[in-house]
Write a protein that binds this DNA or RNA. Structure first.
Lengths: 107, 107
DNA sequence: CTTCGCTACCTTGCTTTACAAGATAGTACA
DNA sequence: TGTACTATCTTGTAAAGCAAGGTAGCGAAG
């Protein structure tokens, strides 16, 4: 059992939270997640996730030129996305508390 | 997006932790999880999970009669299961810290 | 005695989602 | 020309929770 299963339903919330802080593009998110302790989230994970969230109306994209390299797609969070982020945060806190409670029992 | 996706890769660790505390049977686990804040984990989730963990050698089962009702299958954790539980706990702490870190940034 | 409800277990098929692998391009420097 | 880095996207696979349904034992109410 790897740790990838644990990410399900969590990554999208994390991406939302990061984009809510500041406008970001996909490639940047990949490196940023690593800095936050997520070991090597692949681009094959991030890009489909971004497109999914855009389709759901949680984020919006605008293309802009890069000082060096191909064009970038910058994402921002919509009002719907902010609501979804709040809902995610609530769900996470609930789950986190429950698991913590269970794990502490046997320390 | 429901919260069920968040449970992936987490439920097995939680079941292991509960069984490590005391010998338990499947039906009991379903009610116990609810008490710990997991809203309504269905039996269609728990039983396949228990069989999977038994196949992996993490838990062992013994059938015993019930004071009232059909026979019960009591599970205990094997040494391999304890090791897996420790590994799960480590993974959880790491993930939990990372997500917490990301979510706190925008409070 | 039969019917209803609770206990207790299991199976099938569906859906979501992360990921490996690979494709496509633009820029820059040697 | 070729190598390296940036940047995006696609396809196919596998894992795992869950809804829905099935089987069966026991006890109490009618």
């Amino acid at each position: 059992m790897s740790s990838t299963q644990m990410l399900k339903g969590i990554l999208d919330g994390c991406l939302l939270a990061l984009i809510a802080e500041e406008e970001l593009y996909g490639y940047e998110l990949a490196t940023k997640l690593a800095a936050y302790g997520f070991s090597d989230i692949s681009e094959g994970t991030i890009y489909p996730l971004l497109m999914r969230m855009q389709k759901l109306g949680w984020i919006e994209a605008t293309q802009r030129l890069s000082p060096s390299g191909p064009k970038r797609k910058y994402y921002t969070v919509t009002p719907d996305g902010r609501m979804e982020l709040a809902a995610f945060t609530a769900r996470w806190r609930q789950l986190s508390a429950s698991v913590h409670h269970i794990l502490k029992e046997e320390s």
